[in-house]
């Protein structure tokens, strides 16, 4: 284990894992509803990647915590306030443009984060990153191509993309928040402090937005709270769906 306190590492792992689980769950809601067959395959495929990454992180978190909890306990048996995902990933899917832009934002956020973790002082995390960094590259390319195609497409698709930018803009800042956990993680060489990856995020988005004919919008009041377990209304409904089986049939296994 790396040179950071156990509870700090645990908090960091759970944030990452929660981001991936919740976004994976959101994406899985598209299964059978995507606008075309290829996307109907792409959405659950990416959901699988995200949930797979979440599983690897939860399994490691369980090991780090060392109290006998399992990945399933973390995924299914916590209360809303115990989930520390960023608020962006819990946003309802909206239309396809909205979902795809959220994918682009999250992949552009994670790509430099995973790259940084390849050289993590925590070997186990570096192993997870080695796989994830290749998967997120796919997600990034997929989402980027769609944002350009829709933003530079028909009048309606361009309008829907602009609406998506306006709708998600308040949730971007939270990705790059720093606090004691992220700073200790960075000091211990486990992962980058999110603010330090902001230039890489901007560099990924700039050419895509330019080609799509989209502009960033200013946000007077960014939304925040996810890392402290404070979520929007949508999160409760999401968890009701995600946790249904374990709540209705406690301890059920496949």
């Amino acid at each position: 284990m790396a040179g950071v306190e156990r509870r700090t590492l645990l908090a960091f792992l759970l944030r990452l894992a929660d981001d991936h689980l919740i976004l994976g769950h959101r994406l899985s809601e598209w299964c059978g509803h995507a606008p075309m067959l290829e996307e109907d395959l792409a959405m659950p495929n990416m959901a699988l990647d995200l949930i797979g990454q979440a599983r690897a992180l939860y399994q490691y978190a369980a090991e780090v915590e060392g109290k006998g909890r399992t990945e399933d306990d973390f995924a299914y048996l916590r209360r809303e306030r115990e989930y520390t995902n960023c608020m962006m990933v819990e946003r309802p899917n909206g239309d396809f443009a909205h979902t795809i832009l959220r994918q682009l934002y999250f992949a552009a956020f994670m790509e430099p984060m995973w790259k940084g973790m390849l050289a993590s002082s925590d070997e186990h995390l570096a192993g997870i990153a080695a796989k994830a960094v290749k998967e997120v590259a796919y997600h990034l390319r997929h989402a980027g191509e769609w944002v350009i195609r829709l933003g530079d497409g028909t009048e309606e698709s361009a309008w829907r993309m602009r609406e998506a930018v306006a709708s998600l803009a308040p949730y971007v800042e939270e990705l790059f928040e720093t606090d004691e956990v992220t700073r200790e993680i960075a000091a211990g060489g486990v992962a980058s402090d999110p603010p330090s990856t902001r230039p890489a995020f901007d560099a990924i988005l700039r050419p895509i937005f330019a080609e799509a004919g989209l502009e960033q919008v200013d946000v007077a009041h960014p939304k925040t709270g996810g890392r402290k377990g404070i979520h929007a209304e949508a999160m409760g409904f999401l968890l009701a769906d995600l946790q249904f089986m374990q709540r209705a049939y406690p301890g059920m296994v496949w």
């Binding site: 959901a47 699988l48 990647d49 995200l50 949930i51 797979g52 990454q53 599983r55 690897a56 997870i128 796989k131 994830a132 998967e135």
Partner: peptide, 8 residues
């Protein structure tokens, strides 16, 4: 070793 993270 798994292939993809989410390989079922």
């Amino acid at each position: 070793t798994p292939t993809y993270s989410g390989c079922p």
